[in-house]
Amino acid sequence: MKNKSLIIAVLALLCAFLLPLLTNDYIVQVATEIAMYAALAAGWNLIGGITGYPSFGNVAFFGLGAMLAGAFSVNWHWPYWLAGIVAVLLTGVLGFILGLPILRLKGHYFSIATLALAEATLAIVTNLQFLGGGKGTSLPLIGSPLLFYYIMLAIACLSALITYLIVHSQYGNTLLAIKSDESAAQAVGINTVLAKSTAFALSAFLGSMVGVVYAIWQSYIDPPTVFEPGITVLMLVMTMIGGAGTVAGPIIGALIIGIMTQLAMAVSQNASSLILGLAIIVVVLFLPQGILGSHRSGKGGKRPGKHSFSWRG
């Protein structure tokens, strides 16, 4: 089973690597977006899928990564790679600190708090002139579409690798135990506050990393675009479709939604929203564990919960 998964992963990576040689620029652009969302969804999966805390505010970390890197680069004239590293580290630390109070909340209360976190971050960033204020930040045009495709692909692979290492570690078991029953997890000596906040920080770290690359890829960023709540919804839906708590789930979900969106847009610009809505309904009704979760059900061992994540009050 392990070997089969490894072979599939290597073949998929090979296909992704060779994709630009076999297709045109438009497909590469779409594939870059899919890789970007796969990485974002994998980051969301750490806190929402594995730990069972469905965040509605992860876009805050994506947006912060983009805006901070842009600001450090433009205002302080730092090389972009340095601005990016500092932005990612700062966002990760912020994720940890914010996680300490927010992750004391559970279920709907946690989700509402993260939604408020994203909106508050948007308001703060919009009013901070250092971060470009409401008018946004222009960045120099560097690199090529092909370069950004490979960078996003590398981040998606890194996200999957981090998820794999976590899922196959005692730390991953700690997070799954918290998802199953937090009181029981504490009763076996698990410092749940530390474990959850670390997962939130890792989630913020990955989201921010994607934001940093997105900013320089697009060369212009403004708060309404990079703090768009729909980005979090996409992370959540992609993870749910693929299988929350699994390694490949977010990637499969990003692929499905990415391809379906493109097909829908060929029909009508607005059809993509309709497709997303239908996808959510289908998943909730027929695939509550997602594609991988349903596939693995009943085979024993470690696997996603009965429900991909629970709304625990």
Partner: peptide
């Protein structure tokens, strides 16, 4: 003291309504 610190001091408990980690195997 939080429950996890109490547990690490060597005070363990079971629950009236069973609370096993359902996402993990028995061994895990």
């Amino acid at each position: 003291l939080p429950a996890w610190r109490v547990a690490r001091l060597g005070l363990a408990r079971t629950f009236q309504i069973t609370r096993v980690f359902t996402d993990l195997s028995l061994g895990d």
